[in-house]
Design a protein around this nucleic acid. Structure first.
Length: 212
DNA sequence: CCATAGATGCACT
DNA sequence: GTGCATCTATGGC
């Protein structure tokens, strides 16, 4: 059955990502495509702030890739990584301030059949457990970069759902090397859909043949 | 549950 | 050329 909750407007996103991030927990993101609708209740997010955040894609200033992060709040920033995955952020704060919240994980609450098909038959709680899995479940890809979550015509919207009694926990972000100490990952306590925490795994360089 | 390796395209140095 | 805001498969406990 349909999820109820007020659709988030521009003002909701026009705040610091660190403030928006915990507010997103429990909220539901919906994406409508020709295939149907999938809705995900967010259980895990991470905040990224361009100015002083070495982990942010915007840390070194504007580039073609991160341009959306510098734009208006409420738009989707989708990036491609590891040669095969897409991850989705919601842009926060005003034009010129590169701040965003990465949608890391959630629970599929509507359109489970479609999401399961997109995910190749994964188990229910694995459907959107992890940022790249979440984009697959929702049908978000390269073409969705820059879409306006606050515009009904975009097919994307965020419903604000009453905060649960669940505790919000915070800790270091996943998979980042620089800025790994900043506790800007937020998740709902006890949720089985929260991705298992993995600290950044430094890759050893291939060992060169010993010099002789 | 934990740890590791490989896949793979591209933005940026 | 280097290094990813990751996932899956595989193996061990």
């Amino acid at each position: 059955m349909a999820v109820t909750g007020r659709v988030a407007g521009r003002g909701f996103f026009n705040r610091s990502a660190v403030v928006v991030a915990p507010d997103l927990l429990g909220c539901v993101i919906e994406h409508v495509t020709d295939d149907g609708l999938v809705a995900v209740r967010l259980t895990e997010v991470e905040a990224y702030s361009g100015d002083l955040d070495p982990a942010s894609h915007a840390y070194r200033g504007p580039t073609p890739r991160n341009a959306v992060m510098f734009g208006a709040p409420g738009h989707l920033y989708v990036y491609f990584t590891y040669g095969m995955h897409f991850c989705a952020n919601v842009v926060c704060e005003g034009v010129g301030v590169a701040s965003a919240v990465l949608l890391r994980a959630g629970e599929v609450v509507e359109g489970a059949e479609l999401a399961t098909h997109r995910r190749g038959g994964a188990l229910s709680r694995e459907l959107a457990r992890g940022p790249a899995r979440l984009t697959v479940a929702l049908g978000i890809g390269r073409d969705d970069n820059g879409l306006d979550v606050c515009n009904a015509g975009s097919g994307l919207r965020l419903r604000r759902v009453r905060a649960t009694a669940q505790r919000v926990l915070a800790g270091p972000r996943v998979g980042v090397s620089a800025g790994a100490q900043t506790p800007w990952r937020f998740w709902l306590d006890g949720e089985p859909t929260v991705s298992r925490y993995r600290a950044h795994a430094p890759k050893r360089r291939a060992v060169k043949p010993a010099a002789r």
